[in-house]
Design a protein around this nucleic acid. Structure first.
Length: 921
RNA sequence: GGGCGGUUAGCUCAGUUGGCUAGAGCGCUGCGUUGACAUCGCAGAGGUCACUGGUUCAAGUCCAGUAUCGCCCACCA
């Protein structure tokens, strides 16, 4: 049967599935069932006043494929969304796609390169068409992959960052910031990627430690006639190739070594240069480093640029856009910057200016995208003055208007915001949002530098025209020969508008009014600065309020060895491959329970297997329940009518878990919540209640059926946000047996269990615990003495007064679960066999198992002595605590009473154990 | 140079207002084909909670410091 055939939503095939759970047989059908049912749309009928729960999905790259980062985001967001949908909140999860400027362009350029072409061979328009073509072909992949994950987002609202509305949003934001004088064009030192041939922002530069060299170079003083003297200033540099761009030597103003020489000049010690540069004083120089003298190269260093500005020194550019040396580099012109470094160093050495060379490990900036070493260059670019934007973005976090989970990330965020620098937003790319600025060929003729292929760059002194409508006339001269700025905007500029451009802004749409700000922004901590920070700044700026209430940052998924996944290590795990192997629910469960917020996790097959096994356990446990209720043909009584101890116990446990899960989810502790649900279903429902229920069911007592149905129903509801496919598949089978058919057509829309339904019964919990202890103890004794599993044992149980009733009432249960028949529940004074018996002393009872010849007196003595030691140790601890005068005086009464009761109980056990040991002779 | 995180069973990790014997999964040992499940069941072994000091009646949990691993930020050439 194919997916399309199942779209009629005949889910009857589910009942034919047997044995081991196989997610691939149900996942597609379940997704189609939900989507066709319209479950992913926010329900329009609900109370318009109700506060909606909104998540705007981080848009994956249109040309990308689903990786584990997406998988984590989708898992967490889907769980949150499904939970809120089941709470009955109006729920919107809005998906989208990002054009990913540099990333996408570089992929297409790589394709062109394989065809022996560059984008310049195609020209701007044809290149853009080519990218659109590629985007059109790859776009469906990522969305279909998100569907496979089970993402219950509203696909009808999908937004692409290059759609008309986001374009308008970009335009409006740019114009507003420009008019506010928060966007400007100017020559500044920027990070240049010589491979991608574009400017980068500071955050797009990754600093890595490289092994380099530190060249100590002497810049000679000259006499009045310009003749070199023997002494000079020795500086240390890692970049001798930039010596031709040196404009000064700087020392610290209070450094007495250099004070006598301030104002003197030194000569560039390089072949073909006779330039003299001054010795200046600047506080930015570190006296401790090297000789305390620093060569100043404002054209190729951020710090030097700032020092140069303070001293009125003009930058010189010796490294060109492509990384080769410019004509300013004299005889080194044309060499690659790396070659020039080697050559310059050789010449310095030959000419006697190289004092020494040492190995030096230092941080070198690499382009995040291309990986090449970034070249700091002075260039005319567009910038956002972020000071005021960042101040507001920091304030809303400081004032608690936005909460960051985990909380410690708050300080990272604030630290960054408080030290922000202007944001370079122009990129020399052809793919993305074009900068909405125009120039007049008449007014700006001096600033527009045209190249042969019709492209041009904009130099200083231009007069950009920035308006909401494309201008046709120059406001200065009335000229009509206008050209648009050639550059594109940083992708993160449009991504920064994502929180409101997806909802229709700049139009005042209903969606915008209803869903802004969103409830949770969930993403990896690695894009806190790239994305979250920008959304905060631009959201506050455009909307006047923070764009979301909570930022939830998840950690990175690492491989089994804890390494970051990378193509070069060849350790990349494909989430879909793992889903094929273990089932999508298992993958989701593993990712959700793998770590706590903000912490990295390791993904291993062992953990995936564990989750798969859980899915299988659930499937088979449910098959048992379904089989029993089907057999009863509707003779299911209400769960509240079942009043046996185990009935009350499991329902109380359900209430307890429900309460805990609710609390955890409200604190964004998704992983812990899922773990507790798993624990409840496996270790309590399936291991104990189901086994207990069989005892009565086999006797024809159908009372447990109502409880099984109710608890399974609630368990499926609780688990659904994490394991949507299997829970829905089972629930569809269970639904006909539920009162009122469960109140809904599908689990995805059913009500989430809520705390406080009155079924909590702590007495039942402790009573059943006593029964469990008896069962476990008998099993333990039997195992210790190697009683054959199939053989029944006669057992005497002598309960404590307070547990007599529950244990007596549960004899049939204990018999079956512990293979104990006949089972004698005897009173405190009643005689029990004392010869050839194995015994155990429990808080709730004593267990006596006559085992005939199996019992070894020495073994029994050893066992009981070990127990006695344990009890004695604990008793000493309890007594020490109680004899501490401060404890009784200061600890809460309840804690003191508890300790007293424990001490009394341990004393009783000790006495009993001593008697047992004595009776062994 | 700053900031943050990890250090808990052989392995991977939970443990969020300090309070009974610190938990789970995997792995390990023994037993087991009882009609939901061997992707399972039952029982068991296994931990000085990195270290030192402090606060407290009470510390894995709070404070200070140390060690070690890792991450982020920063203009030491």
């Amino acid at each position: 049967m194919t997916t399309t055939e199942r779209r009629a939503h005949d889910l009857s095939f589910l009942s034919s599935l047997i044995g081991a759970y196989d997610g691939s047989q149900v996942e597609d059908a379940m997704y189609a069932f939900w989507e066709d049912g319209g479950w992913f749309r926010p329900s329009e009928a609900v109370d318009e006043e109700a506060k909606p729960f909104t998540v705007i999905m981080p848009p994956p790259n249109v040309t990308g494929a689903l990786h584990l980062g997406h998988a984590v985001t989708l898992t967490i967001e889907d769980a949150l969304i499904r939970w809120h949908r089941m709470l009955g909140d109006p729920t919107l999860w809005l998906p989208g796609l990002d054009h990913a400027g540099i990333a996408t362009q570089s992929v297409v350029e790589a394709q062109l390169a394989r065809e022996g072409m560059s984008r310049h061979d195609l020209g701007r328009e044809a290149f853009e068409e080519r990218v659109w073509d590629w985007v059109g072909r790859t776009r469906p992949r990522i969305t279909s992959q998100a569907r496979r994950m089970g993402a219950s987002c509203d696909w009808e609202r999908t937004v692409f960052t290059l759609d008309e509305t986001p374009r308008q949003a970009v335009r409006k934001t740019f114009v507003a910031l420009f008019n506010d004088e928060r966007i400007y064009r100017g020559a500044r030192i920027i990070n240049w990627d010589p491979q991608m041939l574009t400017a980068l922002s500071d955050v797009e530069v990754e600093y890595r430690e490289d092994e380099g060299k530190l060249w100590h170079v002497r810049y000679p003083f000259v006499d009045a006639r310009g003749n070199e003297l023997d002494d000079g200033v020795v500086i240390a540099t890692t970049r001798p190739e930039t010596i031709p761009a040196d404009v000064a030597i700087a020392v610290h103003p209070e450094d007495e070594r250099w004070q006598p020489h301030l104002g003197r000049e030194v000569r560039l010690p390089l072949r073909g240069f006779s330039r003299l540069i001054p010795l200046v004083a600047d506080e930015a120089v570190d006296r401790e480093f090297g000789t305390g003298a620093l060569k100043i190269t404002p054209g190729h260093d951020q710090l030097d640029f700032e020092i140069g500005e303070r001293h009125g020194l003009e930058p010189i550019r010796v490294v060109d856009w492509d990384g080769a040396m410019t004509s300013e580099a004299g005889l080194y012109a044309g060499l690659d910057r790396d070659e020039a470094r080697v050559t310059v160093a050789e010449h310095l050495e030959e000419d006697g200016y190289l004092v020494r060379t040492e190995a030096h490990i230092h941080n070198v900036g690499h382009s995040q995208r291309s990986g090449v070493v970034v070249e700091p260059l002075v260039s005319n670019q567009w910038f956002v003055d972020t000071d005021a934007l960042a101040a507001e973005a920091a304030r809303v976090v400081r004032d608690g208007e936005v909460r960051i989970v985990p909380e410690r990330s708050t300080s990272v965020y604030l630290q960054w915001m408080d030290n922000i620098r202007p944001w370079c937003i122009s990129r020399q790319l052809w793919w993305g949002h074009r900068i909405p600025a125009w120039y007049c060929r008449d007014c700006d003729s001096g600033a527009l530098i045209e190249s042969e292929d019709g492209e041009f760059t904009v130099d200083e002194g231009s007069h950009p025209i920035v308006e909401m409508q494309d201008p046709t006339v120059c406001p200065r001269c009335g000229g009509r020969d206008l050209v648009q700025d050639p550059d594109m905007l940083d992708t993160w500029f449009s991504s920064g508008l994502w929180t409101h451009s997806t909802l229709g802004w700049p139009d005042e749409t209903d969606d915008l009014k209803r869903f802004y700000p969103s409830s949770v922004m969930e993403t990896g901590y690695d894009i806190l600065f790239f994305w979250v920070a920008r959304m905060m700044m631009l959201g506050c700026y455009n909307m006047g309020s923070a764009p979301f209430e909570t930022v939830y940052l998840h950690g990175l998924v690492r491989d089994a060895l804890g390494r970051k996944m990378s193509k070069s290590l060849d350790n990349v795990i494909d989430p879909l491959e793992k889903a094929d192997q273990f089932g999508m629910d298992a993958l989701r469960f593993t990712l959700a329970t793998g770590s706590t917020p903000g912490h990295d996790m390791r993904l291993t097959d062992e953990r995936l297997e564990g989750s798969r096994n859980f899915a299988n356990k659930l499937w088979n446990g449910a098959r048992f329940v379904l089989g029993e209720v089907a057999q009863a043909e509707g003779a299911i009584t209400d769960a509240s009518a079942a009043t046996a101890l185990e009935d009350r116990w499991i329902q109380s446990r359900l209430a307890a878990v429900t309460e805990s899960v609710d609390e955890l989810l409200r604190q964004f502790q998704l992983g812990e919540a899922a773990r507790q649900i798993q624990d409840f279903l496996w270790n309590e429902l399936f291991d104990w209640y189901v086994e207990a229920s069989k005892v009565r069911l086999r006797q024809g007592d159908l009372a447990p059926l109502g409880v099984l149905a109710r608890v399974l129903d609630a368990g499926l509801r609780l688990l659904h946000p994490w394991m949507p496919f299997i829970t829905e598949a089972i629930w569809q089978q269970l639904k006909p047996y539920l009162p009122d058919e469960g109140g809904c057509a599908a689990l995805i829309g059913a009500r989430y269990p809520q705390p406080g339904d009155g079924t909590r019964d702590t007495a039942a919990e402790s009573d059943f615990q006593a029964v469990r202890d008896v069962v476990t103890s008998i099993r333990q004794l039997r195992a210790d003495y190697r009683v054959q599993a199939g053989q029944w044992s006669e057992v005497y149980v002598q309960p404590q007064p307070e547990t007599t009733q529950p244990i007596s009432a549960s004899t049939a249960l204990i018999e079956v679960l512990a293979r104990s028949r006949p089972l004698h529940v005897i009173g405190a004074g009643d005689a029990a066999p004392s010869d050839q018996v194995a015994t155990a002393v429990l808080p709730s009872a004593e267990i006596i198992v006559p085992l005939g010849g199996l019992v070894d007196v020495e073994q029994e003595r050893g066992r009981l002595t070990k127990d006695l030691e344990q009890v004695g140790k604990r008793l000493r601890g309890a007594e020490a605590k109680l004899s501490n005068p401060g404890f009784r005086a200061k600890a809460p009464t309840a804690v003191v009473e508890q300790a007293e009761a424990l001490a009394a109980e341990l004393q009783r056990q000790r006495t009993e154990l001593e008697a047992r040991i004595a009776s062994l002779g």
